[in-house]
């Protein structure tokens, strides 16, 4: 079924428990992905109702985070998993946290949408940058979740590399925002809102990278946090040669 052979335990119940954990994490990921897409759409279309929906979904995301953590702890206590099974359970507990934080950031964007809506005014300045960054971040989240679904290190590496680009784009968008504020001080409050939304997107990119790093740890058992991309590639190459 997959590279980690989750379905090959002597205990069928164990197979099912691990598979359930994986499915539930992907469901939670899908929920957060929708939240993010809706939040961006709410900003773009000044849709207060959609923004409210994003905020409401937050409770469901929190509930799922707790349920997944509960299941992970129960699995640790009852099965004492080892090796890749242990890494999967540890990864899930960490990824739920990253997903929950992504949900929080999407929430912030939704609140920004409501604020922008209430302020009114016709200036659409900053939307281009926001849309651009949002498109890339949404794609990044989707690749990260896909990397987990398929235990695919190549996709995970793609996320790690592209998160660097996101950070660069974020900085350049912020510089743009500053020029807008200098050009037209009346737009400051409005542009500030866009800036917060950009910041939230950048943070979401970081969480996607965390998940991607955890996928690499899950598959190879190599800890690649706080490591430069060059060093990660070197580590993975060594790992491949060792096998």
């Amino acid at each position: 079924m997959d590279k980690l052979h989750l379905d090959q335990h002597i205990s069928h119940q164990f197979n099912e428990d691990l598979e359930h954990l994986r499915t539930k994490l992907l469901e939670m990921g899908g929920l957060v992905e929708d939240q993010l897409k809706d939040a961006i759409k709410a900003v773009e279309t000044a849709d207060g109702g959609l923004a409210e929906k994003v905020i409401e979904t937050e409770d469901e995301v929190d509930r799922r985070e707790m349920a997944l953590d509960h299941e992970s702890i129960s699995l640790l206590a009852r099965r004492q998993p080892a090796a890749s099974d242990l890494r999967l359970v540890m990864m899930v507990t960490k990824a739920t946290r990253d997903l929950e934080r992504m949900g929080d950031e999407a929430n912030k964007i939704a609140k920004m949408a409501i604020a922008l809506n209430n302020e009114g005014g016709e200036s659409a300045r900053g939307y281009v940058e926001l849309r651009h960054l949002a498109r890339n971040v949404i794609r990044l989240v989707s690749i990260a979740l896909d990397a987990f679904a398929r235990f695919d290190v190549e996709s995970a590496m793609k996320v790690v590399r592209e998160d660097k680009n996101i950070d660069t784009e974020y900085r350049s968008a912020v510089r743009e925002m500053i020029t807008y504020m200098m050009e037209d001080p009346r737009a400051i409050s409005r542009v500030m809102n866009i800036m917060w939304a950009l910041r939230a997107l950048e943070r979401i990119g970081d969480h996607a990278r965390n998940i991607a790093e955890q996928v690499i740890y899950l598959v190879h058992g190599t800890d690649v946090r706080h490591t430069s991309i060059g060093d990660i590639e070197k580590k993975l190459q060594e790992k491949l040669e060792a096998h």
Partner: peptide, 18 residues
């Protein structure tokens, strides 16, 4: 050995796989 064994047979044994 218990977090990231090098050999597949070790992994299969300690994780209770066939």
């Amino acid at each position: 050995v218990f977090t990231n064994p090098d050999h597949q047979l070790t992994e299969a044994y300690i994780t209770g796989r066939f």
